[in-house]
Design a protein around this nucleic acid. Sequence first.
DNA 1: CGTTATCTTGACCGTCGTCAAACAGGGTGG
DNA 2: CCACCCTGTTTGACGACGGTCAAGATAACG
Lengths: 245, 245
Amino acid sequence: MDATYPLELLVRTLSAHAALSADDRKQLLALPFSLRTLHRNGYLVREGEPPAGCGIIVSGHAYRHKLTGDGNRQIVSFHIPGEPIDLQTLFLAYADHNVQALTEVQLAMVSRPAMEALVLRNAGVARAVLIFCLVEASISREWTLNVGRRNARARLAHLLCEFAVRMDHMGLAPPEGYALPMTQEHIGDALGLTAVHVNRTIKALEGEGLIARAGRTLSFPNIDALREIADFNPLYLHMQPRAAD
Amino acid sequence: MDATYPLELLVRTLSAHAALSADDRKQLLALPFSLRTLHRNGYLVREGEPPAGCGIIVSGHAYRHKLTGDGNRQIVSFHIPGEPIDLQTLFLAYADHNVQALTEVQLAMVSRPAMEALVLRNAGVARAVLIFCLVEASISREWTLNVGRRNARARLAHLLCEFAVRMDHMGLAPPEGYALPMTQEHIGDALGLTAVHVNRTIKALEGEGLIARAGRTLSFPNIDALREIADFNPLYLHMQPRAAD
DNA sequence: CGTTATCTTGACCGTCGTCAAACAGGGTGG
DNA sequence: CCACCCTGTTTGACGACGGTCAAGATAACG
């Protein structure tokens, strides 16, 4: 099986948290899908609308967000290749939030009926989907903690640690560092800070040698110290040691 | 069917968001369970431990929370009678957070194997459980927005509105107001504020006639104005109009 | 290659945190 | 029955973290 086959990415993401049998994998890989490309800032999901289907990110990054009445934005999650982004709304009548492309995004779209039928038919897949949703909920709780109870330094460090671990786990983070797909504005909206203060905090971390930058490419000269000040404990990501595939 | 039968409460909670067939209900009501009483502050779930079973709150209130390394607490949800509190961890290897009793709590405990078997066997129940988890995730996102992007006034008003709506939907909030089960310390930890500032904010709302207090019992003389300043839109709760039962 | 988005820096301000002390209430035991 | 204590509420003075506004430098994108 070619690792670049779009649904292979979904299988890899789901099996990061739950065991899938050979049959579960086969049925997932047999799902019909179509490819779709979104430009930067394009909407994958729009608040209030019913889900169009289940999109899986093949390449690029996306972010989930909500707006207050007066237009302030809170980003509630970032998404990396391999992640299904519509499970949140697939079984609900309408979306309670937006999802937008952070960069150009390639999506594999599985129709709502096809995905729903597979989940309701195959208990192993249902279990994996449920677990995936539970892990996302766990990440959401950690974000609430991050925004509610940590200072700007720790918040930023925590976000960077989480992103690095998730990218690395999907084999997307080269050891020398990775290019952040988001602007400082996005980071601020994810952390409950302003872009200005994010900038100051980044420069402070850089000044202390905790991160190093080349453009938007980040590396971590002292990852242990960064995790320390981030109060980062990856248990909430519920990652299983990745099985060889 | 007696409405005070413990599992009847679970059925009512699940059907607040998803349709359940007569058969689904029957199978849920047939689950074996035992009753358990926890005193105030008792632990229903402890971070790092595997789930003991699936508890459903029969009476009393509970809260879910996480701690930072230096001991700061963030409450990530409050729970009212009827709500299952272990679905979050039932399918995961260990809990990533704590759940504690806010008041004395009576729990109906369903064993993990029994609940897991029902969910994997009955697609209608699986669907309802998944939807319940998705709604909790939606609430979690709204909380992140609340903590990250609203000021203390709006945060507090939002929490009060949400709690009132949820209590009311379960038939637990008499129209003249309800007794808040949490202290101002709990409220602060839920909102990312200190108890001192919660107190000042409460008094401000009271001074403006937006809430009225008698001890811990709250009433809302001007609920529309309160919702306005809370920026409260209940769509994220995904409530279905409650079917007569 | 120009135009626009993003990043960077400074000065100033405000919301909320910190520290501390007084007060209220409810339960317990002498 | 009352003294005591513990938890929770209330209030004040002061400080700090992060927000706001604005302008200039840099980089990204069409």
